[in-house]
């Protein structure tokens, strides 16, 4: 285990909408070591993307607001930085790639221009040097004939190529942390595998820490060391990929595992988790997952469970692993 790069402590981001306060992110804490890759998994609306946007402080405000917590990068709290200081951190220390490569690039600038833009902001380089570096970056992310492609516009490239360009932009200033928000969701399966391979390769070569946000457990298994399972703005379970896959503790994680189809196994229907993610402005009492949980009891319906630290370094937010549960089951 290396030294800590990122510490997120008790981070809460709320959206103040006409329908009431949406608790998009509620008291979320996690650490990330240098060179480590962390997966954040959850259904739509579980707060995965808001976590990423809160870290680089790009939550749209209004209506969004980071109401509490700390985000420490190398011990430095990002939430107290000025806007100008944050601009120097974005792109230089923390970079982000987004879900939609088709729309994430500006259609009226060449891809080279868009890579150079970041280089020229964060490094003291001439345009010529920046252009050469842009070509190098395109080569690094595996774009053939980068000398020619550098002058292409985004619409001349395929989705997979554009996502490679996004990665090139994100990596051009050699950031310490790369946040990937659903980087492969919009891509074909074969292209997905290539992009994941690229992210994994870059992490190994450059030692960049990675946060990979996805709803796809398979993606996490391929790239990351540790996993956070999020549900309704809260961390439900935390552990290594191996632990989560071989021995899911939280009923929600277990249900997610069951919903992955297994090749070669005949099933009538796919396993799905019944019900829907609760509305984040009208949250149920007790455990946020209890309306969909098969094991829920009275305790789950009334008391909101805490995140429990287990001896093997794992964390889980479920009454099953507390003394109270044992008492109840002895009754």
């Amino acid at each position: 285990m290396g030294e800590k790069l990122l510490e997120v402590k008790n981070l809460s981001t709320y959206f103040y909408t006409d329908e009431g306060v949406v608790y998009a992110l509620d008291d979320v804490s996690f650490d990330l070591d240098r060179g480590e890759a962390l997966g954040i998994v959850g259904e739509s609306g579980s707060g995965k993307s808001v976590t990423a946007l809160s870290i680089i402080r790009l939550v749209q405000s209004p209506p969004g607001k980071i109401v509490a917590g700390e985000v420490l990068l190398d011990g430095d709290n990002l939430l107290t930085k000025s806007k100008a200081e944050m601009r120097h951190i974005r792109g230089e220390k923390i970079s982000m790639i987004f879900q939609e490569p088709m729309t994430a690039l500006n259609p009226v600038f060449t891809v080279g221009h868009q890579i150079m833009e970041s280089i020229l902001i964060h490094q003291h380089k001439t345009k010529k040097e920046a252009r050469e570096q842009a070509i190098e970056m395109l080569r690094l992310v595996g774009i053939p004939a980068p000398e020619k492609r550098v002058d292409d516009y985004p619409h001349q490239m395929s989705g997979g190529m554009r996502q490679r360009v996004m990665i090139a932009i994100a990596l051009c200033c050699n950031p310490q942390l790369l946040i990937c928000d659903e980087p492969t969701t919009a891509l074909d399966v074969t292209i997905q595998a290539q992009i994941l391979e690229l992210i994994r390769d870059i992490r190994e070569r450059l030692g960049t820490s990675v946060i990979l946000i996805t709803h796809d457990l398979g993606v996490v298994a391929q790239v990351t060391d540790k996993v956070i399972i999020m549900y309704a703005g809260k961390v439900m379970e935390y552990g290594t990929v191996r632990q989560i896959f071989t021995d899911p503790l939280h009923p929600y994680t277990a249900a997610l595992m069951r919903s992955i189809p297994v090749i070669g196994k005949q099933t009538e229907r796919l396993n799905v988790i019944r019900g829907m993610v609760p509305s984040l402005s009208k949250r149920p009492d007790g455990c946020l997952f209890h309306p969909r949980c098969d094991e829920a009891c009275e305790l789950c319906r009334t008391v909101r469970p805490d995140l429990i630290n287990l001896p093997d370094g794992r964390q889980v937010r479920c009454h099953k692993y507390t003394d109270k549960w044992e008492e109840k089951s002895h009754d």
Partner: peptide, 14 residues
């Protein structure tokens, strides 16, 4: 409001 503006912000563009 487009995605590419968010990308630009994430690069640190003023």
């Amino acid at each position: 409001n487009q995605d590419y503006v968010r990308t630009a912000r994430s690069k640190g563009v003023s």
